[in-house]
Structures are given as C-alpha cells and as structure tokens.
Computed example of a mutant assay.
Amino acid sequence: MTTLVTATATRREQYDRDGVVQVEGLLDAAEIATIREAFMEQVARDRTAVGAVSEVADDDVLSRYPRFMQPHRRPDLEIGRIARRYLSDRRIVDALTELVGPVYGAQSMFYFKPPSARGQAMHQDNYFLRAHPETCLAAWIAVDDCDAENGALSVVPGSHTMEVVCPEEADAEESFTSGLVRPPEGMEAVQTTMRAGDVLFFHGSLVHGSLPNTSTDRFRRSLILHFVPQASVEISRFYLPLVDPLTGADVTIDEATGGGPCGEVWEGGAH
C-alpha cells in the first residue's frame, strides 16, 4: 500500500510521484482546539455569515452544518482571522514552497461533517479553481482524528498526472455534491488515516473524495486551504483576490473562463 507520510527530505520526490504527501503533527493540540471551538461557535450562532454553501435539503444534517466558504474574507469574525492566519502560516507555506515554489493563497473552507453526513464523491480541485498554466494545491488540515468510519479522505496516488476531466453524476445517497471523477485505469484509492493537526498536501488534479460519516458520535471537521503557484497567470473569478502569504496583501491575476465555487460552469475543456 502507498504510504502518504514521508520524511521531509523526500517530500518533493513523493509529491512529484504521487501528487500527495501527509505531514503529521504540523499543528499542535492547542491550535486545533482553537480552530474547532471558533468554527463550532460560529455555526451555532450564524451558519450563513461566511458564505456558507447550502447544497442540501432542510432535513439533511448538513443543512445545520454547511460548509463555510472563504471565511478568510471576513476579518470581522474570529473564524475569518483564523483562516487568514493559516493562509500565511509559515509551516504550511514553507511545505508548499518545498513542493512547487512560491505560492499565493486562493481559498479557505471549513467542513463539519457530523455523524451520518454524506461524503463527497471523487473529484479534482482544479476543476473548480481553474488555475492555469499551473494548478492549485490543497492543504487539508484535520481538525479531528479521522479514518474510514467517520469519513476521512481517500486519495488516488498518481492520478495527478491525468488532465482535469468533466465529472459524471455522483450517487446522491453517498455524496452531497453531484460530480464524480473515476480513478484512472490501473490506479486505486488509498484510505487516509489522520490525527488532528496532520496536514495532507495534494495536487489540484489528484482524484480524491470521501464516503459518509458512519460513526454515531464523531465529527470529521477539517480546515481546507487552497494555494496556487505564483507562476499561475489566471484563476476563476470566485477565488480573486489571492493572498500573498509573505505580506498578507491581496493580489490579483487574470480571471479564467468558467469555474466557480461549486463548478456549475465548465468552459473550454481541461487545463
């Protein structure tokens, strides 16, 4: 089985080969507790304040715990300040720079995934971000210990070498999103197991997703950040402005055609 955890000296080599690297314990327990508490307080107080995307019926558990989109654009909220801070966190940015060179922050998201919540079908992130000619990269921060039972990510090592493709229809019983990208022939998904504070870094073309949370009492919360190499010249409008992690300043590059927060529009084929 492919091992997603590797020594620092070989992260770039593994990333080039597999498109995904897991770094253990990058954030400590106190940091994770602060993130968890702030987002739980926000969703209890006002779950629509940070551009929450509601893709589900009112009786779905995810209607009470919708995913938060771009909280870093709300510096007036504690969760906004937290998200913005981690878009510039040196540990995260340094790891990304080791993999692809200097980066800009493009997106922040928070997924709650309570018990019984559906997962998200296999997909490719750059289908949405449309970064070009480079691709986006994710820093997926585990805010809870996660495994197959509570719906941890599955990834397909090596699938980052395929082009971004238009998705098929996903199984609505399993996924709260509608798009499905199947792994390339001869490649198989690997189930991740992560501890709170671990970070999974992966390529924008990597096929990945998750199954439902089948536990009775375990959340699978995650803070997800997306970045693009500074060599990228365009990105979907939804992700502008970008964030310079060194200065904290907003940065604008050209808008790509199509894309968007939920991928409703796809024009011009794959990058």
Rank of each mutant, 00 (worst) to 15 (best):
G51A: 06
Y239V: 01
R74E: 12
A256Y: 00
L27G: 02
T3I: 13
V5T: 14
P66R: 12
L27F: 15
L180T: 04
P229L: 03
S232Q: 06
S154G: 07
G80F: 13
D58H: 06
R85Q: 14
Q42T: 15
G268P: 05
E234I: 05
H271R: 15
F238Q: 03
R182A: 11
I79C: 10
Y127E: 01
L99K: 04
I35E: 05
H160G: 00
A95C: 13
A121S: 15
G258Q: 09
S54T: 13
W266F: 14
A172I: 09
L129I: 14
L27T: 07
G101R: 13
Q14C: 11
T48D: 11
M109N: 13
I82P: 01
H203G: 00
S159M: 02
V199T: 02
L27Q: 02
V156Q: 08
I79F: 07
Y65S: 00
V243H: 03
I92H: 09
V143L: 11
M194C: 13
S215F: 08
A148M: 09
T214E: 12
I235Q: 09
R67D: 10
H123Y: 04
E78I: 10
P115Y: 05
V5D: 02
A38M: 10
G151K: 02
Y104I: 08
V23A: 11
Y111S: 09
